[in-house]
Design a binder for these strands. Sequence first.
DNA 1: TCCTGCCGTGTAATCGTTTCCATGAAGGGA
DNA 2: TCCCTTCATGGAAACGATTACACGGCAGGA
Lengths: 335, 335
Amino acid sequence: MAGIKEVAAHAGVSVATVSRVLNGSPRVSEDARAKVRAAVEALRYRPNAVARSLRTEATHTLGLVIGDILNPFFAELARAVEDEAREAGYTVVIGNADERPERQDHYVRTLLEQRVDGLLICPTAEVTPLVRDCVAAGGPLVFLDRTLPGLQVPSVRVDGTGAVRELIQHLHGLGHRRIAFISGPDLLSTGRERTRAYVHAMRAAGLEIREEYVEAGDFQAASGQAIAARFLDLPEPPEVIFAGDNLMALGALDEIRARGMRIPGDVALASFDDVAWFVHVDPPITAIAQPAGELGRRAVRTLLERVAGRPVKPVVLPARLMIRRSCGETGRTQR
Amino acid sequence: MAGIKEVAAHAGVSVATVSRVLNGSPRVSEDARAKVRAAVEALRYRPNAVARSLRTEATHTLGLVIGDILNPFFAELARAVEDEAREAGYTVVIGNADERPERQDHYVRTLLEQRVDGLLICPTAEVTPLVRDCVAAGGPLVFLDRTLPGLQVPSVRVDGTGAVRELIQHLHGLGHRRIAFISGPDLLSTGRERTRAYVHAMRAAGLEIREEYVEAGDFQAASGQAIAARFLDLPEPPEVIFAGDNLMALGALDEIRARGMRIPGDVALASFDDVAWFVHVDPPITAIAQPAGELGRRAVRTLLERVAGRPVKPVVLPARLMIRRSCGETGRTQR
DNA sequence: TCCTGCCGTGTAATCGTTTCCATGAAGGGA
DNA sequence: TCCCTTCATGGAAACGATTACACGGCAGGA
């Protein structure tokens, strides 16, 4: 492929002038500019971003390490990150860590070697040495969705406390008392926070928290199904099953359906983390919606601030309760 | 950040030796190898992939331009591409073209400038000059899911003809005669093929194809809803609505629900393109499943063959009919 | 007319690797 | 002892861009 040298020769100027035209420097005559433009066109020249990056020490690339792009929450997050980054002139490289620390490390390592300008990570539970080093080295890092204890890294995340309180009040108002919670892994900050929010909200509503009504899953569908089964097998099964994320809600839904039980007649269902198709099941599922798109956009903006060397503040966005029909009728229903 | 020079100095060897150790060349003494390893560790050296790529003319990066990562079909595709690429030692940069030719061009241009080793594109309808040039220049390009007429580019895609024939037979066997089809845009190869398959299958089953029962949407939910509405408003509405992709099926589902109609009692629903949640709606939706994962993996393998300069054959994978309950009961039901 | 300053342009160093080629040491056979 | 091979190693030239610096020409003021 033609390089800047060929363009220079074709245009009858030096490589410096070609470079200046390409980068829009003002110190170039109209004449030279036109000749270079013509040569670029004629040779179908495409600047080599690799060489440029080597020289300028900037790749205009961001890394994004998420759990799994198949999870609609992460898909929306990734989409928003991509959009915001593109608008700022950046490309995004996505890595699916699958909640596996070694795979997270694989991506972090690769992305660092590729010299991405900044890194967005939804960290897995473990603080790996690599991530610790990266933080210590002051790499432009921002945690997304989750945080990691003891590390001084700016984070952009969602706070569902208020929404969970609203949900419990809503359930309480509907006459439900026995509300079970399929929590997330205790090792994940999101898992811990959601459990805390549930406990506080139950207390605030004056409801009893029974030990057998709280069990931790792994944010995957199978665990949601298994835990829902145990809840329903209890001598006194709960009136409501509240799942800690959309996949576990899906598992619970399957289990309830498999038993031929009616929602919300026999048992009510609610989910932390809303997904598009919750609206389309029968009955539509009441859920706490996380502003995934906004989260992604804010994360990119925060990261770019950090890349520019400006100080950044952590961002916390509120989640929102979407009342539908899976917990009983109230009259007011939302899409 | 420390470079290979510092490592060489620290280890007391030359940069050439360091490079050889890093690349696993056999012509290095154990002694030197150990010293270099120690220096790499001590300095926390990370090879600069940008410099390496400049020198070796290979980035070990693939580009993937898709419609929209939020569409579960593309999400699965992207996930599979990523997995297969990672196993082969490649990173993937994804671009969401949103069916907009100018945005597709933006990504193609950017990825070419980044000097990706290969490019996977789900092309939009238009053949843009950029893509044409790229093909002419013999860039390592593979079309994914869709093809573009008149361009000699290897493609990896799905053939739904057999599955559509099965579906129509299934519907016919259930007693349905009036089967309407929400087709995709005629400009997309997938849209054209699905319509052709529908027409052929109807003829083969000896069913009449009524003009008012075939209307083209744009593969988005809103168009599916609008077209379903028109079908249902017909003096003689169809017994079955067959949607050309998952989003239009979703739109049709909404419209049917909004009218308070029962599925499959009042109208049956089927979809080309299966998604995970079709199983979880009530009733589960009969759909034609595309092997998105396999498609992505084969695409990467094909592309890498092409990158290696070996000749490749186009790949065509068959779709599979998943009979569920949205078209009526048959006894046999699949997940 | 001469000096000063500005402006457009070119030369060459540089970024961090890989890799070709030369070199010198060591080992083995005659 | 001498020569030839083998092998580990180092020096230095690329890769394709950006950019500091220098230089020559021209305009305007003295």
